[in-house]
């Protein structure tokens, strides 16, 4: 009987490893940018091509940066959540219109509503590279000193908002 215990124990160790592995999401790569200063940018605003917005213009307040595009179907899923968040008057959301055409982005906002204070226009994805964007939509929480405090990859769900982002915002604004 005893000689079966060791293989059995090894089997359970293996099962534990596999079970953990199954539950990890390989698409969620933790960002090295969290707790680092948000990369500087200088971009025109989607609705106003002549207006330039810089990262430093946003110092002094806590804000969300949401990466979106009109070609991104998952953005459509999270959009009502952001609209609702903006309506409740939380912190300002700034968009990053990633690899999109200006008229497509504007049309999308007209069609689905605009939760953004402004959207940065990033047609060739350079700001996206600076922010390590690889799976749109992505959402960053940036504090009043311009430091990235949290990054969410994929659509923001009401659960993520309630359980993670809003508690963090309350802490940052306290």
């Amino acid at each position: 009987m005893k000689r079966f215990l060791l293989p059995l124990a090894l089997f359970f160790v293996l099962v534990a490893f596999l079970a953990t592995g199954l539950r990890l999401d390989p698409r969620e790569v933790s960002s090295p940018l969290v707790d680092k200063p948000a990369p500087a940018f200088q971009a025109t605003v989607l609705a106003r091509p002549e207006f330039i917005l810089r990262r430093d213009d946003l110092l002094g307040k806590v804000w969300l940066l949401n990466v979106w595009a009109s070609w991104c179907s998952a953005c459509r899923v999270e959009h009502p959540v952001l609209i609702d968040f903006a309506r409740r008057g939380g912190v300002p959301i700034y968009g990053l219109n990633y690899k999109d055409k200006r008229e497509d982005g504007l049309g999308w906002l007209r069609q689905f509503g605009n939760p953004y204070r402004d959207s940065l226009f990033d047609p060739d994805g350079r700001i996206g590279i600076d922010y390590g964007v690889y799976g749109v939509p992505e959402t960053f929480v940036i504090d009043s000193k311009g430091v990235i405090r949290y990054k969410h990859i994929g659509p923001v769900t009401p659960d993520v908002l309630r359980d993670t982002i809003e508690p963090l915002l309350r802490k940052l604004n306290a």
Binding site: V29, S31, P32, L33, D130, G132, Y134
Partner: peptide, 8 residues
């Protein structure tokens, strides 16, 4: 690249 996307 590592600064932006991590060791991964």
């Amino acid at each position: 690249m590592t600064e932006r996307y991590g060791d991964f």
